[in-house]
């Protein structure tokens, strides 16, 4: 099944800009491919990725078939307070995967 891998620094100084990386396993079937018998393979992609910091959205992406399989995103945020950074991927055929990481801000 799908699994997510996220990378958030465990500790940061208040006000520091930290880098966050997130990866989820997914084939990202484009909908433009055909089987060897010529039948169209239906689209099955992740369409949305969002990251929240203690419940407030800090980053969001809308995905199209041009995103490679196993979507990877690297982005940044300002470490404001200790808490949880949560990730959510959703897409075609009811795809929904969540992950989270704790951060301590001193």
């Amino acid at each position: 099944m799908s699994s997510a891998l996220v990378n958030v620094p465990a500790r940061a100084r208040r006000g520091e800009v930290i880098e966050i990386k997130a990866l989820v396993s997914h084939a990202m079937e484009t909908g433009y491919r055909r089987t060897q018998l010529g039948a169209a393979i239906p689209r099955d992609i992740i369409t949305r990725f969002a990251c929240t910091y203690n419940g407030t959205e800090i980053f969001r992406a809308e995905l199209h078939p041009a995103i490679a399989a196993n979507p990877f995103f690297a982005f940044s945020t300002v470490a404001t307070e200790s808490g949880t950074i949560a990730f959510h991927w959703s897409g075609d055929n009811g795809f929904s995967v969540a992950a989270s990481a704790a951060i301590t801000v001193a």
Binding site: T56, I58, F59, A66, F73, F75, S76
Partner: peptide
Amino acid sequence: GPRSGRASVATRIR
């Protein structure tokens, strides 16, 4: 947004 701190993003495309 302003909470991003830096306008820098990376991914992989087809």
